[in-house]
């Protein structure tokens, strides 16, 4: 194994016509890694807060996600119950053990049966808390971990994701900046999921169908802060 490592690196250097990089050049590359720079960032996402939320909703709906915007956490259970009813879905919901999801007064809705945990084979509806949203393309960013199991984003037929209105950023770069700021430079979880709409495929005769292997439905609930 060490041999093929040396062989590959040696072949690369030989092809580039040089030996190992001189220290000065290595330092410049280290600096580039340590200070990640944004490149060309489209203007589309660089708008004020209300326009960002409107853009997020428009882009998410363009790719067949559905959205709801509520005034505060207390309004979430009714919105979820209505969504499930409208789609003829069972009212049993698996919740992510996430502070954002836990802050919702689920017991207010007696129509909902809620349990908590990671995603399992028979889960039909999962509710998770997104780390943030990206308006540019109506994308949700979810960070895997004890509070946000990846399995809950992918196994249930219906994925309901909560995102605070204040955490809808304009661009992916802002999302990365926030990940680094809140999790530390080495703080990437096992999986960072960018999710843009529900699962789909066009592999049979280029016919677009939702619900390939992941959720058939993605419902994003945008939660405004409770009025002070």
């Amino acid at each position: 194994m060490t041999d093929s490592r040396a062989a590959t690196l040696g072949a690369i250097r030989a092809a580039l016509g040089r030996g190992p990089l001189p220290d000065q050049e290595t330092a410049a590359l280290e600096a580039r890694l340590a200070n990640p720079a944004a490149g060309v960032v489209p203007g589309r996402g660089r708008v004020d807060a209300e326009a960002r939320i409107a853009l997020f909703i428009a882009e998410a709906e363009r790719v067949s996600a559905t959205t709801a915007r509520v005034a505060g956490p207390e309004a979430v259970p009714a919105v979820v119950a209505r969504f499930l009813r409208e789609h003829n879905l069972p009212s049993t919901v698996k919740l992510a053990p996430d502070p954002q999801v836990r802050s919702i007064p689920w017991s207010q809705q007696s129509a909902l049966t809620v349990t908590e945990g990671h995603g399992e084979k028979d889960d039909v509806v999962g509710v998770t808390g997104a780390f943030c949203g990206v308006a540019e393309t109506g994308t949700l960013v979810l960070l895997s971990g004890p509070e946000s199991p990846s399995t809950l984003d992918f196994l249930p037929d219906t994925h309901i994701a909560l995102v605070p209105a204040a955490r809808i950023f304009g661009t992916y770069e802002e999302a990365w900046e926030r990940v680094r700021a809140e999790r530390g430079a080495d703080g990437l979880p096992r999986a960072v999921h960018w999710i843009t709409g529900p699962s789909r495929t066009a592999d049979i005769e280029q016919t677009l169908l939702l619900g390939a292997h992941g959720p058939r439905r993605l419902h994003v609930v945008i939660v405004d802060a409770r009025a002070p």
């Binding site: 363009r62 790719v63 895997s144 399995t151 999986a191 960072v192 999921h193 843009t196």
Partner: peptide, 21 residues
């Protein structure tokens, strides 16, 4: 598409507290 549905950045195996992976 503007963006594919799932873009995932996977970093290492399951962490000590992770429920899956």
């Amino acid at each position: 598409q503007e963006m594919s549905v799932y873009n995932t950045f996977v970093t290492g195996p399951r962490r000590p507290d992770d429920p899956d992976g």
